[in-house]
């Protein structure tokens, strides 16, 4: 089977740039990465469906070879699913902005706390690690309070907007 080199190159560029964007901490950039990768994979289906041909519609046959309809159906489904997922991620990013005024994916403070505590246990007399553990615990408390504060603020913003 001969394949279309241009399509392969385009697909790999899409997936490559998508993977790069996906590694970003910013949720919207990661979403862009997901979309690019998704389109790259959709092209993969088209490549896999073999050589181009006339439309696979009954009655539209011009005597030439017909394109394989199955991958087209699959790609259509995949596009629809991607659209739905995109809508959800955008809503999530919007909500993240409302509650945290931030688009970046935050760290899990609980695992950071346990990690620092374990280090403090291991090192025993080392003062630095223990202080660090306490610092992280305090930071967690602060950020919890901060989130609540900011959430209230967000709520009033919303009310202000709707009023």
């Amino acid at each position: 089977m001969s394949v279309n080199l241009t399509l392969i190159l385009v697909a790999s560029v899409l997936v490559g740039t998508g993977a790069y964007l996906f590694l970003s901490r910013s949720l919207v950039r990661a979403l862009m990465g997901f979309l690019l990768m998704g389109n790259g994979v959709n092209l993969l289906f088209i490549i896999g469906s073999g050589p181009a041909g006339s439309p696979p519609i009954v009655g539209a046959d011009d005597g030439g070879p017909m394109a394989d309809p199955v991958p087209q159906a699959l790609v259509l489904t995949a596009i629809v699913i991607t659209l739905a997922m995109t809508a959800f991620v955008l809503a999530l990013a919007h909500r993240g902005w409302q509650v945290g005024r931030d688009d970046l994916v935050a760290d899990d403070t609980e695992s950071a706390r346990i990690h620092a505590r374990a280090e403090a246990d291991d090192l025993g007399s080392e003062p630095g690690a223990r202080e660090q553990a306490e610092e992280i615990a305090a930071e967690t408390e602060r950020s919890e309070r901060g989130h609540h504060g900011r959430r209230d603020e967000g709520a009033t913003d919303e009310e202000g907007g709707t009023a």
Binding site: F22, L27, A30, F34, M37, G38, V41, L44, F45, I47, G48, S49, V70, P71, L74, A78, M85, F88, V89, L92, G96, V105, D108
Partner: peptide
């Protein structure tokens, strides 16, 4: 956010595998 991004990535890998399988 973490959960959604990881799930989306695994879906992409799955989808690519399906495309290659069909090919």
């Amino acid at each position: 956010t973490t959960y959604v991004l990881v799930s989306l990535l695994s879906s992409i890998i799955f989808l690519a595998a399906i495309g290659l399988t069909y090919g």
